[in-house]
């Protein structure tokens, strides 16, 4: 399990740290041990990463210390100005949106935010948006289109919130409109699944020219628990459902749903967040370069053609 993986790697990492301290103090004879331990660390982490089951990746994707949208905004973008409200009903803290600079280029940033501590998690409704969140996202997307700014979205939600108010105010309509808006938005869009890509509530920020996915993130039509309860008749079958649903980055790449897998530091993004930001930044830069010079009409056409081609069926 991921928790054990953390512990084992953590203790190895700690002992490497101590060894380095000792060596710095002059104990050069410890050098071979350090080299050996470092090698072991890398091997172990790599092995554990490769051997991760879908369910273990679900745990990593939901890891409480995993970097969230706010962290990416703070560490990859500069001068972020957050904009609030849907101008219709309220402001939904489960979605953050605004303008910022990406390596000097002005861009719009929109993402789900789960929150870190208990208080913030409650404020942000654990990253489960209400219709207002999607309507705010749509508003910022349209501003980005108006000012010809690329849009970066970060996906990290268990799903859109299932509640009375959400239904009364048109959760379905808000999600549908966000999806349709992205489908024809005349500005480049790059979406990155950073943690949990939970169903329609995730796709509402996911219709993009380039779709990236962090190595240990997941993207699914339904949570493994939900699928297990319905199809496997037991919530305890969630690990099995996770396997069956094929929700890992690798599977999604194979299925042609995403364009690129962003590697994570060994053992998961939360173990080395700074390195994670560098890796994500590099992937975003590459994705932006690939599309930024495409004439916008052509880009939208390609985006629509890409989604039109998604689906497998026979026609005999």
């Amino acid at each position: 399990m991921s928790i054990d993986l953390d512990k084992e790697l953590q203790s190895l990492g700690d002992s490497i740290f101590l060894l380095r301290q000792e060596i710095k103090k002059g104990k050069k004879e410890l050098l071979p041990e350090l080299v050996a331990k470092r090698k072991k660390f890398k091997e172990l982490a790599k092995k554990k990463t490769q051997e991760l089951t879908a369910w273990e990746r679900v745990q990593l994707a939901r890891h409480p210390k995993r970097p969230h949208t706010i962290d990416y905004i703070q560490n990859i973008f500069t001068d972020f100005v957050e904009l609030h409200g849907d101008r219709k009903f309220g402001d939904d803290p489960a979605i953050i949106a605004g303008f910022a600079f990406f390596e000097g280029i002005p861009v719009a940033v929109i993402g789900h935010e789960k929150g870190k501590d208990t208080k913030e998690k409650i404020k942000r409704n654990f990253g489960m948006p209400h219709p207002e969140g999607y309507r705010k996202a749509i508003r910022i997307m349209k501003l980005a289109e108006k000012f010809k700014r690329p849009v970066f979205t970060f996906i990290d939600t268990p799903g859109a919130y299932p509640g009375i108010g959400a239904e009364e105010r048109g959760q379905s309509q808000a999600i549908a409109e966000s999806i349709m808006t992205m489908g024809s938005l005349k500005t480049p869009i790059i979406a990155t699944v950073i943690g949990e890509g939970g169903s329609g509530g995730a796709l509402a920020l996911g219709v993009a020219d380039r779709i990236l996915m962090l190595e240990n993130s997941i993207y699914s039509v339904i949570s493994p628990e939900g699928c297990a309860a319905i199809l496997f008749k037991s919530q305890e079958k969630a690990p099995e459902a996770a396997e069956s649903l094929k929700i890992t980055a690798e599977h999604l790449k194979e299925l042609g749903v995403i364009d690129c897998i962003v590697p994570e530091p060994l053992g998961g993004a939360h173990l080395q967040p700074k390195k994670t930001y560098r890796l994500v930044k590099r992937a975003l830069r590459k994705a932006l370069r690939e599309i930024i010079n495409t004439p916008i009409e052509e880009l939208v056409e390609k985006r629509q053609a890409k989604f039109y081609s998604m689906g497998r069926f026979t026609e005999v």
């Binding site: 796709l203 929700i247 599977h251 299925l255 989604f307």
Partner: peptide, 8 residues
């Protein structure tokens, strides 16, 4: 995931 993409 393929069914989710049908929404788009």
């Amino acid at each position: 995931i393929i069914s989710l993409m049908q929404m788009a």
